[in-house]
Simulated assay, not measured.
Amino acid sequence: MTVSPIRKVFQGVADRRQMFAMFDRHAQRPDRRPDDGRSLYAGEWFEIGQAEHDYMFEVLPPVCLAVDMFAMREFLTRSVTSVFFTSWIDGRARYFHGYCDLADINSGRRMREAIVERESRPVRAMTRQERLEHIWSSTHDDYRGYAGERWPAPDRGKRTVMVYGGQHGSTSKLLDGLTDREISEKLPVHLRYLPDAIAA
């Protein structure tokens, strides 16, 4: 599974429990090794509250990258680590977590710019990919996973989620293959009817 561009992975402000759950959204990936997740994690970001931001600042002595931006000293994988941002958007301070690849010294700046651009849009909207990422982030580990040996070879390793199939019961389906109806059913009510955003 190859990803990597900067992408929002959760709608709304994550509380502490949600934040810790999203720190490792890909924990169940097959053949997990400590050095194999750079393309999965680098570029992911979501909003957190000030209390969560301040808590993470005090966990370990941080690596300060710039004004209102610090990184964790412990790396998730290779050169990818958690970076925490404070950004002023529409006249108020907001707080964000993102995974940046510090092998690229400009990755934090680019992520901050992408976050501010995305969160400064006047109309609340979500792209299809943001909807899928929110579903993945908010689905419990028991109901999401990765396509294994029983799947056709081209689909193996892709993300799957459980969907309710009516009389046929629940079944596992590729996340990227969810229909618009299935996506709507899996989103919380307050996100179901947001307009589609055009991906940047």
Results as ranks from 00 to 15, higher is better:
M72W: 08
F75I: 07
E47V: 02
T86Q: 13
T86H: 09
E58D: 13
A71I: 01
F46A: 04
V59D: 06
W88G: 09
Q50N: 10
L76T: 06
D90G: 12
L60P: 06
V63T: 14
A66V: 02
M69L: 12
G49K: 00
F57A: 12
F75L: 08
I89L: 04
W45I: 01
E58W: 10
G43L: 07
E74Q: 12
S39L: 12
G49D: 11
Y41V: 03
V83I: 08
F46T: 00
S79E: 10
A66W: 02
C64M: 10
P61M: 08
W45Q: 03
Y41R: 01
M72L: 15
W88T: 13
E52S: 11
F85P: 03
A51R: 13
L65R: 05
V59L: 13
D68G: 09
V67F: 10
D54A: 15
D90I: 00
I89T: 05
P61C: 05
Y55L: 14
L76C: 07
D90S: 10
Y41W: 09
F75Y: 15
V83D: 00
T81V: 06
Q50D: 13
S87C: 13
F57Q: 11
D54W: 06
V59I: 14
L60M: 11
D90M: 10
R73F: 05
E74G: 08
L65C: 06
R73P: 07
S82W: 03
V80Y: 03
S39I: 09
D90E: 12
M69N: 04
T77M: 02
Y41L: 11
T81K: 06
T77Y: 00
R73H: 09
W88L: 12
P61H: 08
F57P: 04
A51S: 13
S39T: 12
P62D: 07
D68I: 01
T86C: 11
R73V: 07
E52I: 00
L76V: 09
L40D: 07
I89A: 02
D90A: 15
C64D: 12
L60K: 12
Y55Q: 14
I48C: 04
A71V: 03
W88A: 10
P61L: 07
E52W: 02
G91Q: 02
I48E: 01
I48P: 06
T86A: 11
A71R: 01
L76A: 06
G43E: 00
E52P: 03
E58C: 08
S79M: 08
L60V: 12
A71N: 02
A71D: 02
I89F: 04
E44H: 11
A66H: 07
E47Y: 03
F70S: 03
G43D: 05
F46G: 05
G49P: 01
G91L: 01
M72G: 08
E47I: 00
Y55R: 15
V67Q: 14
A42C: 08
E47K: 05
V63A: 12
E74H: 11
D54P: 05
F46N: 05
E52M: 02
E44T: 08
P62V: 08
F46Y: 12
D68M: 02
A42F: 01
P62M: 01
